[in-house]
Design a protein around this nucleic acid. Structure first.
Length: 730
DNA sequence: CGTGGGCGGATTTTT
DNA sequence: TCCGCCCACG
């Protein structure tokens, strides 16, 4: 048969991996070496050449985005719908299993999923409920402990109690937490994995069933798997199915959240005769950039070993800039971007990468001052917004009355006379009787005053009524009814103008999201399916992603992306590598991998910048250049000196706190005021009926045909026609 | 019950 | 410096 369409676009190494014989396979895929291509072509190869049924293939990723991309590319490759294949995240697939086998897994049919915030709230409530000091038993740390244990596959009984009182208490909290989850019929993210792993291990025949079905299991980003994910995969594969895993030990940057890069080596031990392929040809970066990346990463120990190369030229040298302080650093970067754009480049070609989010601020100020649109990645996502979570809490109660987290969230929102007092009584009753808050509400009536009991009863009746009134309605009508009848919309309308308006808009957006939602599986009621979807896919970046903006994000967020020009900023010891990571070799090596990841994001140009003096947390500090800079061979690097300023810079940022600077992130300084009559002022705060509040970034032309660029707080930057914009100044 | 001021803490993030 | 959380006050 003709396989040229499959193999034609591949290089030799890729081709070998794609056509590997049917055996456990490990593909070490360097940055930019065509990893996704190998995965998707492998699937097509299995289907078209090995005649494997798509039904028998499972592909696992870490993020919904990666899963979506893989699905799209496989469909394009196969030229048919990919529905019969299982493609999803570890959590998504585990969730699917638990929904199907809820009974065997010991879960209520309508179990709901706790997101990170819900989980922490629950833990906090437990800590308080047990009369423990929150300062000693910090909910965040307790939650972290619980999740770490679950990631390691350990239940409270299996956690080693070495007699240390702190540890012992944490184990007790873990136990109490499990009990609370059971009572409430909720599972957290880690629980999805652990529970479905246990399902395979403990329910006879079930693992065999799935093993028989999925003869081929493909795993992406294998270096990011944690203990339970690896165990889960091994349990699924058994000794009969074939794993095909792709990863890069040099890009393992999530050890701090449980990822075990050792799983790559473990995989080679656990599956004797594993075929190993290396993808080392890079299609992204110039020779110099790759040489720098190779040099940096070679300082790490225990690598499997890999060296990136390109058939392209060396390209330009890497440029290093030593800023006087963080503002100088930002100014330098913004000026380079300005030059790039003035030479006809796109703003989106430029990515500013940094170690920690706090660093974005100074860059934002300078970009704003230069009126260059930008986008910061990594903010709150749609389903994580307060008002959305409130609405979801109502919906969750409709679906599952025992969900205490949701109960607490909205029992008094909007205010309906159920205060802290009432809740105290309720919690105590629920605790002694081992029930949910909902179940405790009615028997508590006598303990409470007539008034409190009445208010509480009204809430119960409301939720019951929401349920009754929406049963059988289309999903979006259910959502619409609930946000209206619960009083949420009215409540947020009363809030201060811009904020409340935005919230109501988001609630309406939730209705739209529900309208556009197509449940994947027919078994679950649409509402429950939608709720799980909201937690598991909390909503990737909204629209405007394709607007031409400078891209700003942390190094972690940048993994997997590429940009023509990369600015790797804040290269100072203590910041990058971070102070808290340099105390042990493992931590330092992970920082180095992070540097490797950052370096290999660059396609054509790479700038490294650092500041001799940096103001952080309000204190000036003097940092030495990052040790990673010295790891790059000197001949690859060109030190850039700031040009002698002939004219004063267009914008001299004010010293902080001196009055005329930026009051907040988005309010531009009034020194850019354009006084020409009839035009909006630059930096002016404006309000748009649909897009909400924003700041004027630039103005072109005058009168109704003039255009104005506004950076909206919620919608990002937009160009509007003055004649139609209906902008009002604030 | 809702808000404002004081206090402490401040890598990295997905599901 | 700045943000989020807690408590005290109106």
């Amino acid at each position: 048969m003709d396989v040229s369409h499959l193999l034609g676009p591949l290089n030799e190494a890729q081709r070998q991996a794609v056509t590997a014989p049917l055996a456990p396979t490990l593909v070490l895929a360097g940055a930019g070496s065509g990893k996704t291509r190998v995965l998707t072509h492998r699937v097509a190869w299995l289907v078209e050449v090995e005649h494997v049924s798509p039904h028998g293939i499972l592909a696992v990723t870490f993020t919904n985005k990666a899963a979506g991309e893989m699905r799209a590319r496989i469909e394009a490759q196969l030229g048919m719908p990919s529905a019969p294949l299982w493609i999803g995240t570890f959590h998504g697939i585990a969730h699917r299993l638990l929904r199907t086998h809820w009974r065997e897994a010991g879960l209520p049919q309508g179990f709901s999923i706790l997101d990170a915030e819900d989980q922490q709230r629950l833990v906090k409530r437990l800590v308080r409920g047990l009369g423990l000091d929150e300062a000693r038993w910090v909910p965040r740390e307790v939650t972290w402990f619980i999740n770490s244990q679950k990631d390691e596959g350990l239940r409270p009984k299996q956690v080693v109690d070495d007699g240390d009182p702190t540890r012992r208490q944490l184990i007790r909290l873990y136990e109490a937490y499990e009990e609370a989850c059971r009572r409430n019929g909720v599972v957290d993210f880690a629980e999805l994995l652990l529970r479905s792993y246990e399902l395979w291990r403990e329910v006879p025949g079930l693992a065999e069933h799935y093993r028989a079905r999925f003869g081929h299991v493909l795993v992406d980003e294998f270096q990011d798997t944690n203990t339970i994910q690896y165990a889960w995969m091994k349990a699924l594969v058994g000794s009969t199915s074939l794993p095909f895993v792709v990863g890069d030990d040099d890009q393992s940057i999530y050890r701090w959240r449980g990822a075990r890069v050792e799983n790559l080596q473990q995989f080679r031990k656990d599956f004797p005769g594993v075929l190993l392929f290396r993808l080392e040809q890079n299609y992204r970066s110039t020779g110099n950039i790759l040489a720098a990346a190779n040099a940096i990463i070679s300082n790490n120990s225990g690598r499997i070993g890999k060296k990136l190369w390109t058939s392209d030229g060396k390209g330009e040298r890497i440029r290093l800039y030593r800023g006087f302080n963080e503002r100088d650093e930002a100014e330098f970067v913004v000026n380079r971007i300005r030059e790039w754009v003035s030479r006809g480049g796109q703003r989106r070609d430029n990515a500013i990468l940094y170690r920690s989010n706090a660093q974005s601020r100074v860059f934002e100020e300078y970009l704003l001052a230069s009126r260059i649109p930008y986008r910061v990645y990594g903010g709150l996502r749609f389903f994580e917004r307060q008002e959305i979570k409130d609405a979801l809490a109502y919906l969750r109660l409709v679906a599952n009355r025992d969900d205490d987290a949701s109960f607490e969230r909205v029992v008094n929102l909007p205010t309906r006379g159920v205060g802290a007092r009432t809740l105290e009584v309720l919690r105590a009753h629920a605790k002694t009787h081992g029930t949910s808050l909902w179940a405790a509400a009615t028997p508590c009536a006598e303990e409470l005053g007539a008034r409190a009991a009445g208010c509480l009863q009204a809430f119960l009746a409301l939720v019951d009524r929401l349920d009754a009134d929406t049963r059988g309605l289309p999903l979006h009508e259910q959502v619409d009814h609930v946000i209206q009848a619960s009083g949420l919309v009215a409540h947020y309308q009363k809030e201060k103008a811009d904020k409340g308006e935005a919230r109501v808009e988001n609630l309406e957006e939730l209705v739209s999201a529900a309208r556009g939602y197509a449940p994947e599986d027919g078994e679950l009621p649409p509402l429950m399916s939608f709720l799980s979807h909201a937690v598991l896919e909390s909503g990737e970046g909204q629209a405007e992603e394709w607007e031409d903006c400078v891209q700003m994000m942390t190094l972690h967020t940048a993994k997997g992306l590429e940009f023509p020009v990369v600015y790797l900023c804040g290269l100072e010891d203590g910041l990058f590598p971070h102070q808290r990571s340099v105390t042990d070799l493992q931590g330092l090596e992970e920082e180095r991998r992070l540097c490797y990841v950052g370096t290999t994001r660059a396609m054509r140009q790479l700038y490294l910048t650092y500041a001799e003096q940096r103001r952080m947390h309000g204190i000036d500090s003097y940092g030495a250049p990052s040790r990673f800079i010295a790891e790059i061979p000197a001949e690859l690097v060109e030190e850039v000196r700031p040009k002698v300023q002939v004219s004063r810079p267009a914008y001299v940022p004010p010293q902080r706190g001196s009055g005329s600077g930026f009051g907040t992130r988005t309010v531009a300084s009034s020194r850019f005021v354009d006084d020409s009559p009839g035009s909006l002022k630059l930096g002016q705060r404006v309000r748009h009926p649909k897009f909400g509040d924003g700041v004027v970034l630039s103005v072109e032309g005058q009168g109704p045909n003039g255009r104005v660029q506004v950076n909206f707080e919620r919608q990002g930057t937009k160009w509007l026609m003055m004649g139609y914009a209906h902008l009002e100044t604030v």
